[in-house]
Design a protein around this nucleic acid. Structure first.
Lengths: 347, 347
DNA sequence: TATCAACACGAAAACGTTGTAGCTTACGTG
DNA sequence: CACGTAAGCTACAACGTTTTCGTGTTGATA
């Protein structure tokens, strides 16, 4: 086992000073050609690489981004991470991932654990519990300490920072209008409780679409699922609620604010003998594996998670590397969405 | 914006020495009660937290694990990451994620980028390209430098290190025998090329099952997909191959070495008018969202990714924290599998 | 021969910690 | 009174870098 050589051991071995070695490796013109070559050869031979930690300490920069998300077993978040990784690696940054599991406490712990010098900035999508309890002190404190944060998807209006979102209202409106124009008369929505920003906004878009098409909004057609935690855990609960919903309402069009709700609705509809898309048309939100491989394949809105990730990383790194004295104003990037036409809607 | 206070500024502020502050905060008995209280109060007020980087440098430990996986947009890998995170966080470790995208080069870069002091050890599932080119120098060099590696799922026999795997042969045998016992006469397998260890082993299990049940192995029934890269990209290619396969062979039972192959096979079968499970029974490998939400829900083998992740983290952290002088021998943990009975098989 | 660049290198500080060793002061003991 | 010692604190080194500021040698110039 050969230990990683340090400047010190190279210096001793070659009988020069540490500074000489350092400078030689960085090709400083202070050092003579001969010495440089000697040092470089030796360094190559022993596969010298500067110690990152020491550099971090010296530069007060870790070249590492902290990404905190509610859960990783979730297609959308993984595509975002891919995007972040892609951009970050390109710029020489690493990515350290923290999982909040939708828990406020774990989110706080993760933030604190990483804010002690381990990372230069955060990219975060806030936990449902945090949104629900409305306690954002950990976020504002982090920003106060000079650690920039970029929020994506689930953002908080009260906190000033860079954000990457999708135009939820407009996009949802577009989706629901698609249902309207393909003949649906009774369109319902399966959403989340209002404290989840995206759920609220998408519901708003749904209402907008109906109203501007002269259709009255029927509150009964709006189903708000209360899943505070990991959605996979209470799948039965979800099915039950959708069952009840179908029992009470006869819809021929359905807009679901995420894939899982859409897929589950399809499943329940099938059990009730409804043909898709003939009896019931469905559009989901967030294009993931489920939509693509569902039967029938689900028409859905692509949020372009990869681009969102890239954009978030870009905003963060730009802020980190901004050397101007004046603070850049905070930006909110809106990533475009697309409706992916598949087989749960008619043309 | 208040900057994070350091020991130095606290010391100056309270007019004591840096060491005194350090010791006071760690409750050393060298320091008088009065001073301790004063320091602690001040530290609390200014929300002092020791700088992680400085600690890492001093202790030569980062309390960070590097996880390198082929792709993150993949249910199995994300469950493994969850497991790793869970165990690691519990032990005070952070997790830094690197994506190889199935590329040898990116795997090497990731390894090198993190091996410079950023992490204490690696958990890795090797890229397909690495397996295919059989170049493992980056792995052995890392181990040589004293950085332990734990491999999971896709492992390399030639490299000595801790490993976490599933008994692919035995598990596959069990699955195929299930097909046999539920009446299948012509059982096929959709696997990967042999350089992917899990593909090879699962094919072996398939053959074993047939042989020990007196069925001759028909090489035509073994389809080996050559997807060197991200499987989502060449979905059409996959479908095509399966189409051809069905054209040439009349199977009534199918074992697929992963979810995607199984789901795609179902799709193609449906197009050919085959009823599942009546005309064709299918079992997949790796229980993910796809299997669960497929139509019909796919009978599949659960690899328990979460447990694999936990186990990998456990092996790594145990090795890192092992203070005995004698090297622990390398362990290979075999995580149990289960067949999740759903609706693509008969009873 | 004295002066001065240019050159090649080294010493030391700094980043934030911790641990060891050392230094006062006060007090008790012989 | 001299000595030992305990309490309470500080100085310093070290982790691995980079960078600023020397410093000594050489050779050329006045």
């Amino acid at each position: 086992m050969k230990q990683k050589p340090t400047l010190k051991v190279i210096a001793k071995e070659l009988d020069v000073s540490v500074s000489t070695v350092s400078k030689a490796l960085r090709d400083s013109k202070e050092i003579g050609e001969e010495t440089k070559n000697k040092v470089k050869a030796f360094a190559k031979l022993y596969n010298y690489r500067p110690n990152n930690i020491a550099l971090s300490l010296k530069n007060k920069k870790t070249k590492t981004l902290g990404v905190i998300i509610p859960e990783i077993v979730h297609h959308f978040f993984t595509t975002v991470i891919s995007g972040i990784e892609h951009y970050a690696n390109d710029k020489g940054y690493n990515v350290i991932v923290g999982l909040s599991n939708e828990s406020f406490k774990k989110e706080v712990i993760n933030l604190e654990m990483l804010a002690n010098g381990s990372i230069d900035g955060f990219i975060i999508s806030v936990a449902k519990e945090t949104l629900s309890v409305k306690d954002f002190h950990h976020l504002s404190e982090t920003i106060d300490q000079g650690i920039p944060i970029v929020m994506f998807d689930r953002v908080i209006d009260e906190i000033e920072c860079d954000k990457v979102i999708v135009d939820d209202v407009k996009t949802s409106k577009k989706a629901v209008e698609k249902l309207i124009s393909s003949g649906c008369k009774h369109i319902g929505i399966i959403s989340t409780k209002d404290y989840v920003s995206v759920g609220r906004l998408r519901t708003e878009g749904y209402k907008n679409a109906l109203q501007s098409n002269g259709i009255e909004v029927d509150p009964d057609l709006i189903l708000k699922i209360d899943d505070k935690f990991n959605s996979d855990d209470n799948l039965e609960f979800l099915e039950e609620q959708i069952h009840d919903y179908f029992k009470k309402n006869a819809v021929d069009g359905l807009f679901a604010v995420n894939e899982l709700y859409a897929i589950t609705a399809m499943k329940v509809a099938r059990q009730k003998g409804l043909k898709i898309p003939d009896d019931l048309q469905i559009i989901g939100f967030t294009d993931g594996v489920l939509s693509k491989h569902a039967y029938p394949p689900l028409t859905t809105i692509s949020q372009h998670g990869f681009e969102m990730g890239e954009e978030a990383a870009k905003l963060l790194i730009e802020r980190l590397e901004n050397t101007n004295d004046e603070e850049e104003p905070f930006k909110t990037t809106i990533v475009k969405t697309d409706i992916i036409d598949r087989e749960t809607t008619k043309l």
